[in-house]
Write a protein that binds this DNA or RNA. Structure first.
Length: 344
DNA sequence: CATGCGTGGAT
DNA sequence: TATCCAAGCAT
């Protein structure tokens, strides 16, 4: 019994046959000298894909590349437009950093992305994963790509039973050991595709190119790995939102503070969101009506219940906060779309 | 190094 | 209905 371990060649051969068709992807080149993808496309897609599913990203990727075809066009866009275009995709710090990064690359680097991991990682919104992915996929550098898919596959292939996040360093070392000098970009995408399809939460081991090399499969514990440290429960928070309609059809909105939750996004004014009883001050004196329904929304780290007060007001009114606009609900984050839907 | 930061699909 | 979790990063 001489275990040889997984081979990058086996998963690359699988990728050549099974690579998913994605808008930002140049299909694997089957040995031909490769046409490289547009680094702008790879960067944009990888930032969008941070903690976000391919299905959710595809539409936004097409929207962004259609509206801003290159790094210079994006760099010249007003921040409010970029935030509005990102609305609904979540993790809005990504959009703020996306624009910062575009402006650095466009104005300081002549529109050319660094080709090495260190140079890439120095840019806003680009961390270890994204830097490795851009270097490997866009520039064919032998960079290591480690995301949650790669971690799951490594944990299974090497039967790592230590829970995440404690075993992260171990998993990265295994990933480094398997990354080939050639076609590192295709290799990384192959492992991620594998983790997104065959080696997902419900592994389909018979379809896996590494089934004969996988220690977890041999032990019958693939579905149990990786183990995860227990997560703390989400607390309940409450808030009050004011939906003020002016007689010309506009509504009272504000741009939220640049940092923190929904930072830089358009929203309706209201109270802080707190555990226990929320305390709010209406932005202007009016005949406020408490809507019978509440808005429920769950963020990464808490559940939220919003009470919505609604009022109509004349042209002359001068609220203490915000401004009157006629925003497209599409330009607002999801929780604010829910508020709008309740009042509309 | 732990925490804050969105959303929607799968289960 | 409730929980889990995704092509992570900044601080």
């Amino acid at each position: 019994m001489c275990e040889q371990g997984p081979k990058s060649a086996d998963i690359l051969a699988w990728y050549d046959r099974n690579a998913r068709d994605l808008p930002w992807r140049i299909p694997p080149h089957h040995g031909q000298a490769g046409v490289r993808p547009d680094p702008y496309h790879i960067w944009l897609s990888e930032v969008m894909l941070q903690q976000t599913t391919v299905a959710a990203v595809e539409r936004y990727f097409r929207l962004f590349t259609s509206r801003w075809p290159d790094i210079h066009a994006l760099a010249d866009a007003p921040e409010a437009e970029v935030m509005g275009a990102w609305a609904g995709l979540g993790y809005y710090a990504r959009a703020r950093n996306l624009l910062k990064c575009a402006r650095v690359v466009s104005r300081d680097l002549g529109g050319v992305f660094p080709r090495d991991v260190a140079g890439l990682q120095a840019l806003p919104g680009i961390g270890p994963y994204t830097a490795g992915a851009i270097a490997a996929i866009a520039f064919d550098r032998p960079a290591v790509v480690v995301d949650a898919n790669v971690e799951r596959v490594m944990a299974r292939v090497y039967a790592v039973e230590t829970p995440l996040p404690e075993c992260k360093t171990t998993l990265r070392r295994y990933a480094e050991g398997l990354t080939p000098a050639n076609r590192a970009g295709d290799y990384g995408q192959a492992v991620m595709d594998l983790g997104a399809t065959v080696c997902g939460q419900k592994p389909d081991c018979p379809q896996c190119p590494w089934r004969r090399d996988c220690r977890a499969a041999a032990a019958g514990i693939a579905a149990d790995l990786p183990r995860n440290a227990p997560k703390p429960p989400k607390p309940e928070r409450n808030g009050i939102v004011y939906l003020l309609h002016r007689s010309d059809g506009k509504v009272l909105v504000e741009t939220r503070p640049a940092k923190g939750l929904l930072g830089g996004m358009l929203g309706f004014p209201g109270s802080d969101w707190v555990e226990g009883q929320a305390v709010g001050t209406p932005p202007v004196a009016a005949d406020w009506q408490l809507l019978p329904q509440t808005v429920r929304h769950t963020f990464t780290h808490f559940h939220l219940t919003l009470q919505v007060y609604q009022a109509q007001i004349g042209i002359g009114a001068n609220p203490a906060v915000g401004r009157f606009e006629a925003p497209a609900p599409q330009d607002m984050p999801t929780v604010m779309r829910k508020v709008w839907a309740l009042g509309g």
